[in-house]
């Protein structure tokens, strides 16, 4: 096993696990990580997107079976 660790390994370790992704435009998305690449493009399954408005009380959620997240809008990826 290669012990060489790279930053993207943190994402690799969470393949097939649920992750929380913070996106630009006040969006967050939770889902099971199916795949990723070096641009942080990601494919999530069983995804749930949260869209926040100015007023905090109003959170839209959107469920998607499978979704592609383009890497340029990713701010943060965190395991749940």
């Amino acid at each position: 096993m290669s012990t060489k660790e790279e930053p993207l390994d943190l994402i690799r370790f969470h393949l097939d696990e649920f992750v929380l992704i913070k996106l630009r435009g006040a969006r967050e998305i939770k889902g099971k990580l199916q795949g990723y690449d070096s641009h942080c493009n990601m494919v999530l399954s069983e995804a749930e997107e949260y869209i926040y408005n100015d007023s905090n009380d109003d959170v839209e959620t959107k469920k998607t079976e499978m979704v592609f997240v383009r890497g340029d809008s990713v701010i943060l990826i965190s395991p749940i």
């Binding site: 290669s2 012990t3 060489k4 660790e5 390994d9 370790f13 696990e17 395991p79």
Partner: peptide, 25 residues
């Protein structure tokens, strides 16, 4: 890193990250 590998064998507790690392390995 080479030094780390040597230390590895003395590790007795594994974090979640270690486990996931092993799993991906």
């Amino acid at each position: 890193r080479a030094g780390e590998v040597k230390q590895d064998k003395e590790i007795t507790s594994y974090s979640k990250k270690d486990i996931l690392n092993i799993l991906e390995g």
